[in-house]
Simulated scan of single mutants.
Amino acid sequence: MSLPFRREASTVSDHLDTQIHYWDAAAATKSFTHPLHPPWLAGISRQAAILDYGCGYGRTLDELEQHGFRDLTGTDISPAMIERAQHLHPAMDFATLDTPPSMPSPDADFDVVLLFAVLTCVPGDDAQRRLVAELHRVLKPGGVLYVSDLLLQDDERNRSRYDDCAILNDGYGDVGYGVFQTGDGAVCRHHSREWLTALLADFEGIGTRTVTVSTMNGHESRGTQILCRKAALR
């Protein structure tokens, strides 16, 4: 294992928190499985403007369309993922992000934002904070953020991976415990519940649920889903 943690901090962050070359190479073969929980959609208008940030090949947007939603937008940092999404769902609106996490959308543009298995692909603390702040910006007051991601695992294989990366990370404090490298070269992160709570502190909690998901490399992992709301104007 050889993570690029000892280069200049800004270069390391740029590399680890985007990894565009990895996702472009993986676009044709990877499958994503984080489940959509229909009861959490029950109170949302079918005319709501919904953004799937880190949409990949459009799997979750396709499921939302099957539930009757029509105003659907998907964005991703990977041009190859977006190309696959456009091929699979030619009637949907997809765009590649040129300067993530910044979006061209105006403030308060969306009623709902989905963030499914994206934080796990953004190892850095500061990068995760910037991403969540950008999503807060584009959400309307009273809008909903639906997060699905992976928790710290307690099995020996994962603990060993976390420990290996924690040693390599000495001197680069922006990558917290829970970072690891997959066998095919992606640098990913699992999260404590405490970190996710702190990360989403500017939102009002609505609900949480624990899920079991199959990772993109076929391992069963424990995840969490969080539904929260941007405070309404008073």
Rank of each mutant, 00 (worst) to 15 (best):
M1W: 09
L3N: 04
L3Y: 04
F5E: 00
F5P: 00
R7A: 03
R7W: 01
A9S: 03
L16H: 00
Q19M: 05
I20N: 08
Y22E: 05
A26R: 11
A28S: 12
T29K: 10
K30N: 09
F32G: 05
F32E: 11
T33E: 12
L36G: 06
P38F: 09
P39C: 07
L41Q: 06
G43Y: 10
I44E: 10
I44Q: 09
I44A: 11
S45Q: 14
S45I: 13
D52E: 01
Y53Q: 03
C55N: 00
G56S: 01
Y57I: 09
G58R: 02
G58I: 03
G58L: 02
T60P: 03
D62H: 14
E63D: 13
E65H: 12
E65A: 15
Q66E: 12
H67Y: 13
G68Q: 02
F69S: 05
L72D: 02
L72M: 03
G74L: 00
G74I: 00
T75N: 01
I77N: 07
A85C: 02
H87G: 14
H87P: 08
H87V: 15
H87Q: 15
P90C: 06
A91L: 12
M92A: 09
T96G: 02
T96F: 02
T96E: 07
L97S: 01
T99N: 14
P101I: 08
M103V: 12
P104M: 02
P106K: 03
A108C: 10
D109F: 15
D111H: 13
D111G: 10
V112Q: 10
L115Y: 04
L119D: 04
D126I: 08
Q128N: 11
Q128E: 13
R130H: 14
V132R: 09
A133H: 10
A133W: 06
E134D: 08
L135Y: 07
R137H: 05
L139C: 08
K140R: 15
V144K: 15
Y146M: 15
D149V: 01
L151V: 00
L151R: 01
L152H: 07
Q153G: 03
N158K: 13
C165D: 03
C165A: 13
D170L: 03
Y172M: 01
Y172S: 00
D174E: 06
V175M: 04
Y177F: 14
G178A: 02
V179I: 05
Q181Y: 04
T182K: 07
D184H: 06
G185S: 04
G185E: 04
C188K: 10
R189L: 05
S192I: 04
R193M: 09
E194G: 04
W195L: 11
W195N: 11
W195V: 10
L196E: 06
D202E: 14
F203P: 06
F203D: 08
G205L: 12
V211I: 15
T212N: 15
T212D: 14
S214H: 13
M216V: 13
N217M: 12
G223E: 00
G223L: 00
T224N: 04
Q225C: 06
